[in-house]
Amino acid sequence: MNEPKEKLSKAEEVLHRMLEKDAYSKLLGLQIDEVGEGYCRLHFQVREDMLNGFGILHGGVTYSAADSAFAFACNSHGRLSVALSTNMDYLEAGKLGDSLTVEAKEESLKNKVGVYQIRITNQEGVLVALFKGTSYRTSKDI
């Protein structure tokens, strides 16, 4: 006899639907730790193929991981949301072998606009980067 499956939250349902076709997040090796309404926490390991010519984490990788967490958080309410604007401040260099945690939190949610702060920290809790994203919330349900 099959055990009843635990019912997924709206945020978890949306995440699963997004991840089905998100080849880029898979390529980066993003591992989702937690998702909720207006929230996402994920982590990834810095690999050799993610380093730039100076042997440090390529800024595009950091940005991409933050952008994925932003997307998972702002779509978590079940309405298709897209980025209006984003900004990234790089504070420390990521290094080979680092385990980076990316945490997206909703700061404001209105009918059409959401604002999110994303913090990227390493395994020692050092703040590596800050990302701010503003999303446009369409009227289309996911």
Results as ranks from 00 to 15, higher is better:
Arg17Pro: 05
Leu8Pro: 01
Phe131Ile: 06
Leu19Gly: 03
Asn75Met: 03
Lys7Met: 08
Val46Asn: 03
Gly59Tyr: 01
Ala129Thr: 01
Gly29Thr: 00
Asn2Met: 15
His43Gln: 06
Phe131Pro: 05
Val126Ala: 14
Asp33His: 09
Asp49Lys: 04
Asn52Asp: 08
Gly125Thr: 04
Thr101Gly: 05
Val61Phe: 04
Glu13Cys: 07
Gly125Ile: 04
Ala66Gly: 08
Met50Cys: 04
Arg17Lys: 15
Asn122Tyr: 09
Ala104Lys: 04
Glu20Ile: 11
Glu107Lys: 13
Glu124Tyr: 14
Glu107His: 07
Leu109Pro: 09
Asp22Gly: 04
Gly78Asn: 03
Phe54Tyr: 13
Ala73Lys: 00
Leu27Trp: 14
Gly114Thr: 07
Asp98Val: 05
Asn2Ala: 15
Asp67Lys: 02
Ala66Val: 02
Ala23Trp: 13
Gly78Asp: 04
Ala93Thr: 08
Gly29Ser: 04
Ser139Phe: 15
Pro4Trp: 10
Ala83Lys: 10
Gly125His: 05
Lys140Ile: 12
Gln123Arg: 04
Val14Phe: 06
Gly36Phe: 10
Thr134Asp: 07
Ala66Asp: 02
Glu103Tyr: 08
Glu92Ile: 10
Tyr63Thr: 09
Ser99Asn: 14
Lys112Trp: 13
Tyr39Asn: 00
Leu8Arg: 11
Asp49Trp: 08
Val14Trp: 12
Phe72Leu: 07
Thr101Tyr: 14
Met18Pro: 06
